[in-house]
Design a protein around this nucleic acid. Structure first.
Lengths: 246, 246
DNA sequence: CGGGGATTTGACGTCCTTCAATCGACGTGG
DNA sequence: CCACGTCGATTGAAGGACGTCAAATCCCCG
């Protein structure tokens, strides 16, 4: 409803400056990007791109959260990506979109017209390298998620999702990861189900169960407190050894 | 057991020359790669890299088939990648291996010592660009697989795997995709189960069911004939429209 | 011909889905 | 101000798809 925060005028002021595809660009390169970029906002729930559509732009999520989903003919859907600020949308060199992209919260995108961006990338190794890095990170995340989808129980799936959201939230807000964590769920139960390959009923039941067992606490439907991250990560079936917490 | 085919001496003779990470390299760049490359063979069933090990090399699969798998503490495993000839192993910029890599058939790898390769990549956009392309393809494949893992039934999973193997086989042997297809399964039932997030018993049952229903024919345990690819792809739950067959 | 791993098949259990009813929060209109 | 509709979420009951455990069979190879 209310207008999202105004777009940063200059790349120098951009909140995702140091994490996005432009992270390694120097001043000259930023100027080139500036020439082909524009900001665009989407309201929560609105589609950003439909699978199969011609991509007129690629770009970065500046603020808000978007999802990548695939849908089968009979309507079954699977989320295949969760896009947070600084994540990149679109594939250079490809004309059509491969997945549906939708805003789950209000979203601000920093868009680059596709053709100019592709040309710029051809002659700007800083951009290509950064995009490669980001793509490799996404591939790792996708593979992590394949383990979740293929082998974990419903309870472990929920715990895994909560732990990932907590982690990402910590890295975005720069509050850092601690034993006790508090955050808001950016997804509906249905979106969580689509992410996890479950039904929304199962999601709801497992969240209730985790609450009953004291693994999490809830205020309202979306505000989550994790009293003990180690406990949550054990529930997720992950290596509980210090990889994450200090 | 028996020694695999000898390694190609020159990149010019390499069977994966036009598809691998070096696909876009010119003669000079190939010479540089030549200086840091060596061939290595692995027997069927042997590990290539263990997760967590220091990667001393990265490289391309020249022939044979390898798998990428993740394992949980309690032993549950999920395959997260199937490596065919020309596929790349290893992540530039990362010291430790993230996944177990193992040879499922006899495998020949074209290895590059990691540090020199990373340096070479820094100053060789042809390599970086090709690797970006290949990584984006892998990411697409991983996302396709997330739909399979999260939303498809056991029967659809098997049909999906068969259809993918048939397709890849067609593209490798250059026989092209036709309505009737014949190929060998490169995976045990257990490996198929690990790929699909199923048990080997369920894999076996569903293969029997597809045979009973005339979707596939079997000679021995591994040799598969698909009388009608369209039918198989319908069973896989994919868009059956001409995307694939002529 | 014999041994052993891979595969198939059967019986049974269980985790998750399906179908359905209810609840709570919120916004709208009477 | 309150009734009402909507939407997300919770909860229950019943059924089914897949997993588990166990035994038999098939083949590959010595």
């Amino acid at each position: 409803m209310n207008a999202p925060a105004l777009s940063p005028a200059r790349c120098g002021d951009c909140p995702i400056r140091h994490r996005a595809v432009c992270a390694r660009c120097d001043a000259d390169e930023l100027n080139e990007l500036d020439a082909i970029k524009y900001y665009r906002t989407y309201e929560a729930g609105q589609p950003i791109i439909w699978a199969g559509d011609v991509m007129t732009f690629v770009g970065s999520v500046v603020s808000g959260i978007a999802t990548l989903t695939q849908t089968m003919e009979d309507g079954r859907t699977q989320m295949v990506g969760l896009l947070l600020p600084s994540d990149f949308v679109g594939r250079p060199g490809r004309e059509g979109a491969a997945y549906d992209v939708a805003a789950t919260t209000d979203v601000v995108m920093c868009c680059f017209r596709r053709k100019p961006f592709e040309e710029l990338m051809e002659r700007t190794p800083h951009i290509a390298h950064r995009l490669l890095q980001m793509t490799l990170d996404e591939l790792d995340a996708a593979r992590e998620w394949m383990l979740v989808l293929g082998r974990k129980t419903a309870r472990e799936k929920i715990a895994s999702l909560l732990s990932i959201i907590a982690r990402r939230d910590a890295s975005l807000t720069r509050r850092g990861a601690t034993s006790r964590m508090v955050f808001d769920l950016p997804l509906t139960r249905e979106a969580m189900a689509d992410y996890l390959g479950l039904t929304l009923e199962t999601v709801s039941r497992q969240i209730s169960a985790l609450k009953r067992d004291g693994v999490i606490e809830l205020e309202g439907k979306r505000h989550v407190t994790v009293p003990d991250m180690h406990r949550l990560m054990e529930e997720a079936g992950d290596d509980s050894d210090g990889v994450f917490l200090g």
